[in-house]
Design a protein around this nucleic acid. Structure first.
Lengths: 209, 209
DNA sequence: GTCTATATCTAGATAGAC
DNA sequence: GTCTATCTAGATATAGAC
Protein backbone atom coordinates (compact mmCIF):
# COMPACT_ATOMS: atom_id res chain seq x y z
CA UNK A 1 0.00 0.00 0.00
CA UNK A 2 2.84 2.41 0.74
CA UNK A 3 5.14 3.31 -2.08
CA UNK A 4 7.37 0.29 -2.13
CA UNK A 5 9.76 0.54 -5.10
CA UNK A 6 8.66 -2.80 -6.54
CA UNK A 7 11.18 -4.84 -4.56
CA UNK A 8 9.40 -8.01 -5.58
CA UNK A 9 9.92 -7.57 -9.29
CA UNK A 10 12.32 -10.49 -9.64
CA UNK A 11 10.82 -12.19 -6.63
CA UNK A 12 7.43 -12.55 -8.26
CA UNK A 13 9.17 -13.87 -11.31
CA UNK A 14 10.86 -16.59 -9.30
CA UNK A 15 7.61 -17.50 -7.67
CA UNK A 16 6.03 -17.86 -11.08
CA UNK A 17 8.93 -19.98 -12.32
CA UNK A 18 8.68 -22.21 -9.29
CA UNK A 19 4.94 -22.66 -9.80
CA UNK A 20 5.35 -23.51 -13.47
CA UNK A 21 8.20 -25.90 -12.72
CA UNK A 22 6.17 -27.56 -9.96
CA UNK A 23 3.24 -28.13 -12.32
CA UNK A 24 5.50 -29.71 -14.91
CA UNK A 25 7.76 -31.81 -12.70
CA UNK A 26 4.99 -33.03 -10.42
CA UNK A 27 3.10 -34.18 -13.50
CA UNK A 28 6.10 -36.06 -14.81
CA UNK A 29 7.43 -37.58 -11.61
CA UNK A 30 4.49 -37.58 -9.25
CA UNK A 31 4.31 -35.85 -5.89
CA UNK A 32 6.10 -38.33 -3.67
CA UNK A 33 9.02 -39.03 -5.97
CA UNK A 34 9.66 -35.35 -6.60
CA UNK A 35 12.02 -33.54 -4.25
CA UNK A 36 12.15 -29.82 -3.67
CA UNK A 37 15.59 -29.95 -5.24
CA UNK A 38 14.04 -31.30 -8.46
CA UNK A 39 11.60 -28.40 -8.65
CA UNK A 40 14.19 -25.82 -7.67
CA UNK A 41 16.56 -27.10 -10.32
CA UNK A 42 13.86 -27.09 -13.01
CA UNK A 43 12.99 -23.50 -12.07
CA UNK A 44 16.67 -22.52 -11.93
CA UNK A 45 16.34 -21.37 -8.34
CA UNK A 46 18.71 -22.27 -5.47
CA UNK A 47 17.33 -25.14 -3.45
CA UNK A 48 17.23 -23.54 -0.03
CA UNK A 49 15.63 -20.43 -1.46
CA UNK A 50 12.41 -22.24 -2.24
CA UNK A 51 11.25 -21.79 1.34
CA UNK A 52 11.21 -18.06 0.95
CA UNK A 53 8.37 -18.43 -1.53
CA UNK A 54 6.63 -21.58 -0.28
CA UNK A 55 6.48 -22.59 3.34
CA UNK A 56 6.08 -26.32 2.68
CA UNK A 57 6.20 -28.81 -0.13
CA UNK A 58 2.42 -29.13 0.01
CA UNK A 59 2.17 -25.41 -0.70
CA UNK A 60 4.02 -26.08 -3.96
CA UNK A 61 1.63 -28.92 -4.78
CA UNK A 62 -1.29 -26.59 -4.15
CA UNK A 63 0.32 -23.98 -6.40
CA UNK A 64 0.69 -26.58 -9.16
CA UNK A 65 -2.99 -27.45 -8.82
CA UNK A 66 -3.93 -23.78 -9.09
CA UNK A 67 -1.82 -23.62 -12.21
CA UNK A 68 -3.71 -26.53 -13.75
CA UNK A 69 -7.00 -24.95 -12.72
CA UNK A 70 -6.05 -21.63 -14.34
CA UNK A 71 -4.89 -23.42 -17.47
CA UNK A 72 -8.21 -25.24 -17.68
CA UNK A 73 -10.14 -22.01 -17.18
CA UNK A 74 -8.20 -20.38 -19.97
CA UNK A 75 -8.83 -23.32 -22.29
CA UNK A 76 -12.58 -23.48 -21.67
CA UNK A 77 -12.72 -19.71 -21.91
CA UNK A 78 -11.40 -19.92 -25.45
CA UNK A 79 -13.79 -22.75 -26.31
CA UNK A 80 -16.70 -20.69 -25.04
CA UNK A 81 -16.22 -18.39 -27.98
CA UNK A 82 -17.42 -21.12 -30.32
CA UNK A 83 -21.15 -20.66 -31.01
CA UNK A 84 -22.25 -24.31 -30.67
CA UNK A 85 -21.84 -26.14 -27.33
CA UNK A 86 -21.42 -29.45 -29.17
CA UNK A 87 -18.57 -27.97 -31.19
CA UNK A 88 -16.98 -26.73 -27.97
CA UNK A 89 -17.02 -30.25 -26.53
CA UNK A 90 -15.67 -31.74 -29.74
CA UNK A 91 -12.92 -29.14 -29.89
CA UNK A 92 -11.93 -30.07 -26.37
CA UNK A 93 -11.63 -33.71 -27.38
CA UNK A 94 -9.48 -32.64 -30.31
CA UNK A 95 -7.23 -30.80 -27.88
CA UNK A 96 -6.86 -33.96 -25.83
CA UNK A 97 -6.03 -35.98 -28.91
CA UNK A 98 -3.42 -33.40 -29.83
CA UNK A 99 -1.72 -34.06 -26.49
CA UNK A 100 -1.68 -37.82 -26.97
CA UNK A 101 2.07 -38.20 -26.68
CA UNK A 102 2.36 -36.53 -23.31
CA UNK A 103 -0.78 -38.36 -22.15
CA UNK A 104 0.74 -41.69 -23.15
CA UNK A 105 3.88 -40.89 -21.22
CA UNK A 106 2.59 -39.13 -18.12
CA UNK A 107 -1.21 -39.33 -18.14
CA UNK A 108 -3.63 -36.49 -17.51
CA UNK A 109 -1.94 -33.95 -15.19
CA UNK A 110 -4.96 -33.49 -12.97
CA UNK A 111 -6.14 -37.10 -13.11
CA UNK A 112 -2.84 -38.62 -12.06
CA UNK A 113 -2.47 -35.98 -9.35
CA UNK A 114 -5.93 -36.89 -8.09
CA UNK A 115 -5.03 -40.57 -7.94
CA UNK A 116 -1.95 -39.85 -5.90
CA UNK A 117 -3.51 -37.33 -3.53
CA UNK A 118 -6.56 -39.53 -2.97
CA UNK A 119 -4.29 -42.02 -1.21
CA UNK A 120 -3.71 -39.62 1.62
CA UNK A 121 -5.40 -40.52 4.86
CA UNK A 122 -4.92 -37.10 6.42
CA UNK A 123 -7.20 -34.33 5.26
CA UNK A 124 -4.48 -32.20 3.70
CA UNK A 125 -4.75 -32.11 -0.09
CA UNK A 126 -6.63 -35.33 -0.78
CA UNK A 127 -9.66 -33.62 -2.33
CA UNK A 128 -7.98 -30.66 -4.01
CA UNK A 129 -7.32 -32.36 -7.34
CA UNK A 130 -10.91 -33.59 -7.34
CA UNK A 131 -12.03 -29.97 -7.28
CA UNK A 132 -10.21 -29.25 -10.53
CA UNK A 133 -11.83 -32.31 -12.11
CA UNK A 134 -15.13 -31.01 -10.75
CA UNK A 135 -14.42 -27.72 -12.49
CA UNK A 136 -14.16 -29.57 -15.79
CA UNK A 137 -17.32 -31.54 -15.05
CA UNK A 138 -19.17 -28.31 -14.32
CA UNK A 139 -18.11 -26.77 -17.60
CA UNK A 140 -19.09 -29.86 -19.59
CA UNK A 141 -22.40 -30.00 -17.76
CA UNK A 142 -23.14 -26.45 -18.87
CA UNK A 143 -22.56 -27.46 -22.48
CA UNK A 144 -24.87 -30.46 -22.28
CA UNK A 145 -27.50 -28.36 -20.56
CA UNK A 146 -27.24 -25.71 -23.24
CA UNK A 147 -27.83 -28.46 -25.79
CA UNK A 148 -31.06 -29.25 -24.01
CA UNK A 149 -30.05 -32.81 -23.29
CA UNK A 150 -31.58 -34.66 -20.35
CA UNK A 151 -29.33 -35.49 -17.41
CA UNK A 152 -26.56 -33.01 -18.24
CA UNK A 153 -24.65 -33.76 -15.05
CA UNK A 154 -24.48 -37.49 -15.70
CA UNK A 155 -23.51 -36.84 -19.30
CA UNK A 156 -20.69 -34.63 -18.08
CA UNK A 157 -19.50 -37.38 -15.72
CA UNK A 158 -19.53 -39.87 -18.60
CA UNK A 159 -17.66 -37.41 -20.78
CA UNK A 160 -14.87 -36.69 -18.31
CA UNK A 161 -14.69 -40.34 -17.25
CA UNK A 162 -14.08 -41.28 -20.88
CA UNK A 163 -11.19 -38.82 -21.01
CA UNK A 164 -9.68 -40.06 -17.78
CA UNK A 165 -10.11 -43.66 -18.86
CA UNK A 166 -8.45 -43.25 -22.21
CA UNK A 167 -5.62 -41.23 -20.68
CA UNK A 168 -4.95 -43.91 -18.09
CA UNK A 169 -5.03 -46.69 -20.66
CA UNK A 170 -2.79 -44.81 -23.08
CA UNK A 171 -0.40 -44.19 -20.21
CA UNK A 172 -0.44 -47.70 -18.74
CA UNK A 173 0.01 -49.35 -22.14
CA UNK A 174 2.21 -46.56 -23.52
CA UNK A 175 0.09 -46.30 -26.66
CA UNK A 176 -0.72 -42.78 -27.92
CA UNK A 177 -2.97 -44.40 -30.53
CA UNK A 178 -5.48 -45.13 -27.78
CA UNK A 179 -6.04 -41.40 -27.41
CA UNK A 180 -6.69 -41.11 -31.13
CA UNK A 181 -9.09 -44.03 -31.39
CA UNK A 182 -10.97 -43.44 -28.16
CA UNK A 183 -11.07 -39.72 -28.89
CA UNK A 184 -12.72 -40.41 -32.22
CA UNK A 185 -15.20 -42.68 -30.48
CA UNK A 186 -15.98 -39.94 -27.99
CA UNK A 187 -16.64 -37.48 -30.79
CA UNK A 188 -18.97 -39.98 -32.43
CA UNK A 189 -20.78 -40.30 -29.14
CA UNK A 190 -21.19 -36.51 -28.91
CA UNK A 191 -22.59 -36.47 -32.43
CA UNK A 192 -25.00 -39.28 -31.65
CA UNK A 193 -26.55 -37.51 -28.69
CA UNK A 194 -30.01 -36.10 -29.36
CA UNK A 195 -29.85 -37.73 -32.75
CA UNK A 196 -32.01 -40.32 -31.05
CA UNK A 197 -34.31 -38.01 -29.14
CA UNK A 198 -33.74 -34.88 -31.18
CA UNK A 199 -36.37 -32.78 -29.43
CA UNK A 200 -35.52 -31.18 -26.16
CA UNK A 201 -37.77 -32.37 -23.35
CA UNK A 202 -37.21 -36.12 -23.18
CA UNK A 203 -40.26 -37.26 -21.21
CA UNK A 204 -39.00 -39.36 -18.34
CA UNK A 205 -35.88 -41.25 -19.13
CA UNK A 206 -33.37 -40.87 -16.31
CA UNK A 207 -31.05 -43.45 -17.77
CA UNK A 208 -30.29 -41.47 -20.89
CA UNK A 209 -28.82 -42.95 -24.04
CA UNK B 1 16.67 -81.15 -1.31
CA UNK B 2 17.40 -83.32 1.70
CA UNK B 3 14.60 -84.37 3.94
CA UNK B 4 13.94 -81.09 5.65
CA UNK B 5 11.11 -81.50 8.15
CA UNK B 6 9.01 -78.72 6.63
CA UNK B 7 10.90 -75.91 8.31
CA UNK B 8 9.18 -73.41 6.07
CA UNK B 9 5.70 -74.25 7.24
CA UNK B 10 5.23 -71.01 9.10
CA UNK B 11 7.71 -69.28 6.84
CA UNK B 12 5.60 -69.77 3.77
CA UNK B 13 2.66 -68.58 5.78
CA UNK B 14 4.41 -65.37 6.68
CA UNK B 15 5.37 -64.80 3.09
CA UNK B 16 1.76 -65.19 2.09
CA UNK B 17 0.63 -62.83 4.81
CA UNK B 18 3.17 -60.25 3.72
CA UNK B 19 2.07 -60.51 0.11
CA UNK B 20 -1.60 -60.15 1.01
CA UNK B 21 -0.85 -57.22 3.33
CA UNK B 22 1.25 -55.55 0.64
CA UNK B 23 -1.55 -55.83 -1.91
CA UNK B 24 -4.02 -54.30 0.51
CA UNK B 25 -1.90 -51.55 2.03
CA UNK B 26 -0.27 -50.49 -1.23
CA UNK B 27 -3.74 -50.13 -2.72
CA UNK B 28 -4.92 -47.98 0.15
CA UNK B 29 -1.86 -45.81 0.70
CA UNK B 30 0.03 -45.95 -2.58
CA UNK B 31 3.57 -47.19 -3.06
CA UNK B 32 5.57 -44.16 -2.06
CA UNK B 33 3.64 -43.33 1.09
CA UNK B 34 3.73 -46.91 2.33
CA UNK B 35 6.68 -47.93 4.50
CA UNK B 36 7.89 -51.45 5.05
CA UNK B 37 6.85 -50.97 8.66
CA UNK B 38 3.26 -50.37 7.50
CA UNK B 39 3.20 -53.63 5.57
CA UNK B 40 4.97 -55.59 8.30
CA UNK B 41 2.52 -54.32 10.88
CA UNK B 42 -0.49 -55.15 8.71
CA UNK B 43 0.91 -58.67 8.22
CA UNK B 44 1.75 -59.00 11.92
CA UNK B 45 5.40 -59.65 11.14
CA UNK B 46 8.38 -57.95 12.84
CA UNK B 47 9.68 -55.13 10.72
CA UNK B 48 13.26 -56.24 10.25
CA UNK B 49 12.12 -59.74 9.42
CA UNK B 50 10.60 -58.60 6.16
CA UNK B 51 13.98 -58.74 4.47
CA UNK B 52 14.22 -62.44 5.03
CA UNK B 53 11.31 -62.88 2.62
CA UNK B 54 11.77 -59.93 0.28
CA UNK B 55 15.12 -58.46 -0.65
CA UNK B 56 13.80 -55.00 -1.44
CA UNK B 57 10.66 -52.93 -1.19
CA UNK B 58 10.19 -53.23 -4.93
CA UNK B 59 10.07 -57.00 -4.53
CA UNK B 60 7.07 -56.50 -2.29
CA UNK B 61 5.43 -54.25 -4.87
CA UNK B 62 6.01 -56.92 -7.49
CA UNK B 63 4.49 -59.52 -5.17
CA UNK B 64 1.42 -57.32 -4.71
CA UNK B 65 1.09 -57.04 -8.48
CA UNK B 66 1.30 -60.82 -8.83
CA UNK B 67 -1.42 -61.07 -6.21
CA UNK B 68 -3.67 -58.76 -8.22
CA UNK B 69 -2.88 -60.72 -11.37
CA UNK B 70 -3.76 -64.02 -9.70
CA UNK B 71 -6.95 -62.54 -8.30
CA UNK B 72 -7.94 -61.35 -11.76
CA UNK B 73 -7.18 -64.75 -13.26
CA UNK B 74 -9.35 -66.42 -10.66
CA UNK B 75 -12.20 -64.00 -11.32
CA UNK B 76 -12.15 -64.37 -15.10
CA UNK B 77 -11.77 -68.11 -14.65
CA UNK B 78 -15.07 -68.19 -12.80
CA UNK B 79 -16.72 -65.96 -15.39
CA UNK B 80 -15.54 -68.29 -18.15
CA UNK B 81 -17.97 -70.87 -16.86
CA UNK B 82 -20.87 -68.74 -18.03
CA UNK B 83 -22.00 -69.91 -21.48
CA UNK B 84 -22.44 -66.51 -23.12
CA UNK B 85 -19.46 -64.15 -23.54
CA UNK B 86 -21.74 -61.14 -23.31
CA UNK B 87 -23.05 -62.38 -19.97
CA UNK B 88 -19.47 -62.85 -18.82
CA UNK B 89 -18.68 -59.23 -19.58
CA UNK B 90 -21.86 -58.02 -17.94
CA UNK B 91 -21.17 -60.12 -14.86
CA UNK B 92 -17.75 -58.52 -14.63
CA UNK B 93 -19.31 -55.07 -14.68
CA UNK B 94 -21.69 -56.18 -11.93
CA UNK B 95 -18.67 -57.24 -9.89
CA UNK B 96 -17.16 -53.80 -10.33
CA UNK B 97 -20.40 -52.13 -9.28
CA UNK B 98 -20.46 -54.35 -6.21
CA UNK B 99 -17.10 -52.94 -5.22
CA UNK B 100 -18.18 -49.34 -5.65
CA UNK B 101 -17.43 -48.29 -2.08
CA UNK B 102 -13.81 -49.38 -2.13
CA UNK B 103 -13.44 -47.96 -5.64
CA UNK B 104 -14.77 -44.60 -4.47
CA UNK B 105 -12.29 -44.55 -1.61
CA UNK B 106 -9.15 -46.06 -3.15
CA UNK B 107 -9.76 -46.50 -6.88
CA UNK B 108 -9.00 -49.59 -8.94
CA UNK B 109 -6.08 -51.43 -7.32
CA UNK B 110 -4.27 -52.08 -10.58
CA UNK B 111 -5.18 -48.79 -12.22
CA UNK B 112 -3.94 -46.60 -9.39
CA UNK B 113 -0.82 -48.71 -9.11
CA UNK B 114 -0.23 -48.23 -12.83
CA UNK B 115 -0.57 -44.46 -12.50
CA UNK B 116 1.98 -44.35 -9.73
CA UNK B 117 4.49 -46.73 -11.29
CA UNK B 118 4.24 -45.03 -14.67
CA UNK B 119 5.86 -41.97 -13.12
CA UNK B 120 9.11 -43.82 -12.70
CA UNK B 121 11.87 -42.77 -15.02
CA UNK B 122 14.04 -45.79 -14.31
CA UNK B 123 13.03 -49.05 -15.95
CA UNK B 124 12.28 -50.88 -12.73
CA UNK B 125 8.57 -51.55 -12.35
CA UNK B 126 7.09 -48.82 -14.51
CA UNK B 127 5.42 -51.22 -16.96
CA UNK B 128 4.51 -54.08 -14.61
CA UNK B 129 1.07 -52.77 -13.65
CA UNK B 130 0.35 -52.17 -17.33
CA UNK B 131 0.85 -55.88 -17.92
CA UNK B 132 -1.94 -56.74 -15.49
CA UNK B 133 -4.22 -54.26 -17.23
CA UNK B 134 -3.16 -55.90 -20.50
CA UNK B 135 -4.18 -59.25 -19.03
CA UNK B 136 -7.69 -57.87 -18.49
CA UNK B 137 -7.74 -56.37 -21.98
CA UNK B 138 -6.77 -59.73 -23.45
CA UNK B 139 -9.55 -61.53 -21.64
CA UNK B 140 -12.14 -58.96 -22.70
CA UNK B 141 -10.85 -59.12 -26.26
CA UNK B 142 -11.46 -62.88 -26.28
CA UNK B 143 -15.04 -62.30 -25.26
CA UNK B 144 -15.69 -59.73 -27.98
CA UNK B 145 -14.04 -61.99 -30.53
CA UNK B 146 -16.17 -64.90 -29.46
CA UNK B 147 -19.20 -62.69 -29.97
CA UNK B 148 -18.05 -62.22 -33.55
CA UNK B 149 -17.82 -58.47 -33.19
CA UNK B 150 -15.48 -56.51 -35.47
CA UNK B 151 -12.43 -54.89 -33.88
CA UNK B 152 -12.43 -56.96 -30.69
CA UNK B 153 -9.19 -55.44 -29.46
CA UNK B 154 -10.42 -51.88 -29.71
CA UNK B 155 -13.68 -52.86 -28.07
CA UNK B 156 -11.71 -54.36 -25.21
CA UNK B 157 -9.72 -51.14 -24.84
CA UNK B 158 -12.93 -49.14 -24.74
CA UNK B 159 -14.38 -51.53 -22.19
CA UNK B 160 -11.44 -51.41 -19.80
CA UNK B 161 -11.01 -47.67 -20.32
CA UNK B 162 -14.61 -47.18 -19.24
CA UNK B 163 -13.91 -49.10 -16.06
CA UNK B 164 -10.75 -47.17 -15.30
CA UNK B 165 -12.48 -43.88 -16.07
CA UNK B 166 -15.43 -44.49 -13.81
CA UNK B 167 -13.19 -45.76 -11.01
CA UNK B 168 -11.02 -42.68 -11.19
CA UNK B 169 -14.01 -40.34 -11.23
CA UNK B 170 -15.73 -42.14 -8.35
CA UNK B 171 -12.48 -41.92 -6.43
CA UNK B 172 -11.66 -38.30 -7.23
CA UNK B 173 -15.17 -37.09 -6.44
CA UNK B 174 -15.74 -39.65 -3.66
CA UNK B 175 -19.06 -40.71 -5.17
CA UNK B 176 -19.81 -44.47 -5.25
CA UNK B 177 -22.95 -43.66 -7.23
CA UNK B 178 -20.76 -42.96 -10.25
CA UNK B 179 -19.83 -46.65 -10.32
CA UNK B 180 -23.51 -47.58 -10.28
CA UNK B 181 -24.61 -45.16 -12.99
CA UNK B 182 -21.63 -45.59 -15.29
CA UNK B 183 -21.72 -49.34 -14.74
CA UNK B 184 -25.34 -49.43 -15.88
CA UNK B 185 -24.39 -47.39 -18.91
CA UNK B 186 -21.60 -49.82 -19.70
CA UNK B 187 -24.01 -52.76 -19.52
CA UNK B 188 -26.39 -50.94 -21.88
CA UNK B 189 -23.47 -50.47 -24.25
CA UNK B 190 -22.66 -54.18 -24.14
CA UNK B 191 -26.29 -54.98 -24.93
CA UNK B 192 -26.34 -52.54 -27.81
CA UNK B 193 -23.33 -54.08 -29.55
CA UNK B 194 -24.11 -56.20 -32.61
CA UNK B 195 -27.56 -54.76 -32.60
CA UNK B 196 -26.12 -52.65 -35.38
CA UNK B 197 -24.08 -55.07 -37.44
CA UNK B 198 -25.78 -58.28 -36.40
CA UNK B 199 -23.11 -60.89 -36.03
CA UNK B 200 -21.21 -61.97 -39.02
CA UNK B 201 -20.57 -65.70 -38.86
CA UNK B 202 -17.55 -66.99 -37.01
CA UNK B 203 -19.57 -70.21 -36.75
CA UNK B 204 -16.91 -72.61 -35.62
CA UNK B 205 -13.88 -70.74 -34.48
CA UNK B 206 -11.35 -73.13 -32.96
CA UNK B 207 -9.09 -70.33 -31.76
CA UNK B 208 -11.87 -68.59 -29.91
CA UNK B 209 -10.77 -68.24 -26.31
C1' DG C 1 15.64 -10.23 -0.45
C1' DT C 2 18.83 -13.96 -1.58
C1' DC C 3 21.29 -17.91 -0.69
C1' DT C 4 24.53 -21.46 2.04
C1' DA C 5 25.23 -24.51 5.47
C1' DT C 6 23.30 -27.46 8.37
C1' DA C 7 19.93 -29.64 11.67
C1' DT C 8 16.56 -33.16 12.04
C1' DC C 9 13.97 -36.84 10.95
C1' DT C 10 12.54 -40.89 8.57
C1' DA C 11 12.83 -44.94 5.93
C1' DG C 12 15.30 -48.54 3.47
C1' DA C 13 18.59 -51.82 4.26
C1' DT C 14 22.22 -54.71 6.91
C1' DA C 15 24.89 -57.25 10.58
C1' DG C 16 24.67 -60.39 13.56
C1' DA C 17 22.60 -62.28 18.11
C1' DC C 18 19.41 -65.80 19.35
C1' DG D 1 14.73 -69.54 10.55
C1' DT D 2 13.56 -65.44 13.48
C1' DC D 3 14.21 -61.06 15.19
C1' DT D 4 16.82 -56.68 17.34
C1' DA D 5 19.78 -53.08 16.94
C1' DT D 6 21.84 -50.15 14.03
C1' DC D 7 23.88 -48.03 9.85
C1' DT D 8 23.31 -44.94 6.14
C1' DA D 9 21.25 -42.05 2.65
C1' DG D 10 18.42 -38.60 1.49
C1' DA D 11 14.76 -35.29 1.99
C1' DT D 12 12.29 -31.51 4.40
C1' DA D 13 12.95 -27.65 6.80
C1' DT D 14 15.57 -23.94 9.48
C1' DA D 15 19.20 -20.65 11.10
C1' DG D 16 21.54 -17.23 9.91
C1' DA D 17 25.37 -15.09 6.82
C1' DC D 18 25.52 -12.00 2.96
Amino acid sequence: MTDSPRPRARGADKRRRLTAAAARVLHEQGVERTTLADIAHAADVPVGNVYYYFKTKDDLVQAALSEHSAHLAELTGRLDELPDPRERLKALVETWIGQRDVAARFGCPTGTLAVELDKRADGTLDLEAGKVIGQLVDWAESQFRELGLPGPHDLAITFVAAYQGMSLMANALREPGIMTREGARLIDWLDSLAATGDRVPAPADPTGS
